[in-house]
Computed example of a mutant assay.
Amino acid sequence: MMPQLEELTTEYGDVFMVWFDTPVHMNDRHCEALMALIAKNQPGALVNSRLGNGYGHFDVSIDAGKRPNVCKADWLPDLKVPWQTHETVTKGGWGYTTYGSETDRSADYAELIGHVCNVVCYGGVFLLNVGPRPDGVIPPSQVSSLRAIGDWLTVNGESIYGADPSPLVFPPYAITSKPGKLYLHLREILNNQVSLQGILTGVTKAYCLADPAQTALDFSQDGAELAVTVPDAAIQLHVTVIVLELAAEQAQVADETLQQNADGSIELPAESCEFAVRRTSYDYDRKVTVRWGEHPLQGLLWTVNVSAPGEFCVISEDSGDERLEYELITRDDTLMLNALSGEVGVLSKKPQTGTIRIEQAGRQQIVVYPRVTARLNWSYNFKGLELVPVHEGGEVRRH
């Protein structure tokens, strides 16, 4: 590997990034030698964490990894360090294949552009892969995909380049920010209405980023609730970006802590969890985890305000995988759960065996961690848990 890396870092001009994958048989000595070689030949190059053993400058997700929450865990006081995810314009693989690299993806342009918006929204950066033919030529279908993304960025790049993530930790759709502005990215606008909850800072103007005249859109704001009317003529192909000008440099947001329901139940949806590690992904449309349960460090974390402590039964909602077992942990108790068998790929709710206690009221964290894992668990999706209070005498209140 060293001769190849020497060639790559000396024969191809300035290298922005050296991206490693699958660090099999790597030890500290190997990693240190590779890092030293890159630093000598390309002192400005970044190295990703898949070099292994804790080496590298930044962390990356699993392939095509996404997350349900904004993550700024690696930010430093004087440096915003993003996480990274990667996607490919090919179908069915990362390198060239006759069946996937020549495929027309025009039907997927909105999805590809949406990935760009979502990654920046949640605090990441986007690495887009191409699969050239054996002679180095990038097939026309891939060029068309790149041009579609580039054309959209030519008009809407202000909302992506140099933008910070959403001020809401759990935004309802892709939102990015700059001082004094929020950018709402909408793949679909129903009945010409866009709603947003959670922004407390006053909005002074709304307009479409694609409109050079910045024609003001009608909007109303009542506390943390905002509604914007978007005429048909302003709706863009693939993704429409609405700019909100704010009365302050930074947006103030409402408390996003999950609240216990009036009937005493506690809902723990996947769409409102944080990932303990980035080796998990998320489906924004179905609001479920992807490839969760493959590693014991893949914790899902919820912050909940408990108003009525007690004993709770547990109902899980997932697609079923009898191999997988995971542990639910509160401040006071633990309970082993399992991904009970069900039709693969079909979400269903299932009561779990046993109960779990929460003895104290107040804001607290509830987590689940895989304990018996399932390797390459592509078919399993987790949508969430519901904790249902148990009354005296063991009666479970259902609704």
Results as ranks from 00 to 15, higher is better:
I189G: 07
Q42N: 07
L337V: 09
P231A: 10
R133T: 05
V47Q: 06
L34I: 15
N192G: 11
M35C: 11
H86W: 06
R286M: 10
L146Y: 05
V60E: 07
E294C: 14
V230R: 02
P165K: 04
E158W: 08
T355V: 14
R187Q: 12
Y173M: 04
D104A: 02
K205L: 07
M336N: 05
N156Q: 15
P212F: 10
Y284S: 06
V243Q: 01
Q193T: 14
V143T: 12
K178E: 01
T373Q: 12
S341Q: 12
T88R: 01
L246C: 04
Y207K: 08
S348Q: 15
Q193C: 11
G92R: 15
T215Y: 01
G123K: 03
L237W: 00
Y282R: 08
D151L: 07
L246V: 10
G202P: 00
A227M: 14
R279F: 11
T98Q: 12
G320R: 01
L76Y: 10
D321S: 14
E359L: 11
G95N: 14
L258C: 08
S341N: 12
N191K: 05
A216W: 03
Y326K: 01
Y326F: 13
V290Y: 10
G299R: 05
D108R: 02
H238L: 07
E7L: 06
S145N: 10
G198C: 06
V230W: 11
A45K: 10
D21K: 09
A174L: 00
A64M: 05
L244R: 00
P139V: 08
R133N: 02
E386R: 11
G157H: 13
S141P: 10
A33L: 13
V81F: 03
L127T: 06
T330S: 10
S272D: 13
G124P: 03
T88H: 02
I358S: 03
V130K: 11
E327Y: 03
V155C: 12
E256N: 09
S265Q: 03
E245V: 09
G180I: 02
D108Q: 12
N191S: 05
W292T: 05
D318P: 01
N48T: 03
A233H: 10
P134R: 13
D135T: 09
C71T: 15
L209D: 04
H295K: 12
A36Y: 00
L182I: 14
L226R: 13
T330Y: 04
K72I: 08
R133V: 03
G114H: 06
L146D: 05
V288W: 02
A308D: 13
K349I: 06
G223C: 08
E245D: 14
V388F: 04
E343M: 07
W292L: 06
L337T: 00
T98D: 14
L186D: 01
L246Y: 02
P68C: 01
L337R: 00
V346D: 01
G54H: 14
S49W: 00
D164N: 12
